[in-house]
Design a protein around this nucleic acid. Structure first.
Lengths: 157, 157
DNA sequence: TTGATCGGAGACCATTATAGTCTCCGACCC
DNA sequence: GGGTCGGAGACTATAATGGTCTCCGATCAA
């Protein structure tokens, strides 16, 4: 439950990669093209292309056309939050359907709903979490897999 | 993004309702049948029935067959966490596909994945949040709709 | 003891979201 | 002006979701 989509996953990987190249020691300032990322992470090229286009449209990255073109971060890594990345791809955070009702659409449970308020609090907490974590925070060490206990007590199913 | 399913939504409503009846002032100890909940909250009867059956299977509620039958909480409200409810309906919490890989299945991005560890931290934080909130916490006042700013930089908890 | 009322369980279906593909276009740079 | 890049849209297959239908077994009260 509460899974993020593959696209969002790809977006995070791509941005992490771009940031690593751009602010790394090897070739700082270099733009990164789609193919490079797709091959590095085994992501379907054309799907990744769409993801990156979306990110560009949301001004998280800048595109450069033509030969030697590619993408570069539009801002520095610590100015790009995880929330921004995820929302670019998946739309606004919304635990429930009624989280962002526009006028005209109402949920059937409206009048009697006792869980809306507490759920919105949960949502706020998650939003805070994602807003306070930046691309920069995803950069530090931790290159390979290192799992820590998923849930607090050993919940199994 | 990160939306919970309607079924999970219904589960929360139903449990809240059962708890309210069972520990309320009017008819304490009374069991609640599916139809009552479905009508109260405009939930499709047969869908709600399946949700409640699932909750019963996960021992969150107890079922009583026959006329005057229905459901009652299996534990007290403060002993039922939101995490347990959601996981009963939607399966274990997992931000990413690789959150709970069994042996044999690996994600294509495994070797090069730099985002797994930070994402698992996010997941842990959410798990904590949901594990620390109980059905009891959802009971307090807040009967009607009272939105507070949905996303937000300024919201505290 | 029989029938109305309850939950249990499964098959089933329609709609939507997801993940991925294909094609064509326009910008750029040597 | 051709090869390399991104931009954009249509398109498709598959899976998840939300919801329905049907039949069964337990139970209680008349």
């Amino acid at each position: 439950m509460l899974k993020i989509s593959k696209k969002a996953d790809y977006a995070l990987m791509a941005l992490q990669h771009i940031a690593a190249v751009q602010f790394g020691d090897v070739t700082p300032g270099r733009v990164v093209n789609t193919k490079e990322i797709a091959e590095e992470y085994n992501i379907p090229l054309e799907l990744l292309a769409k993801v990156l286009q979306t990110l560009a449209k949301h001004a998280l990255i800048e595109s450069h056309n033509g030969p030697k073109g590619g993408y570069a971060l539009a801002r520095r890594a610590h100015q790009i939050t995880i929330a921004q990345i995820l929302e670019s791809i998946e739309g606004p955070l919304g635990i429930t359907d009624c989280s962002h009702e526009k006028d005209g659409e109402f949920c059937m449970q409206r009048e009697n709903c006792h869980i809306r308020t507490p759920l919105l609090k949960v949502q706020d907490s998650i939003a805070q979490l994602l807003n306070n974590m930046t691309l920069q925070d995803m950069m530090g060490g931790t290159p390979l897999i290192m799992i820590q206990s998923p849930t607090a007590q050993g919940v199994e199913r």
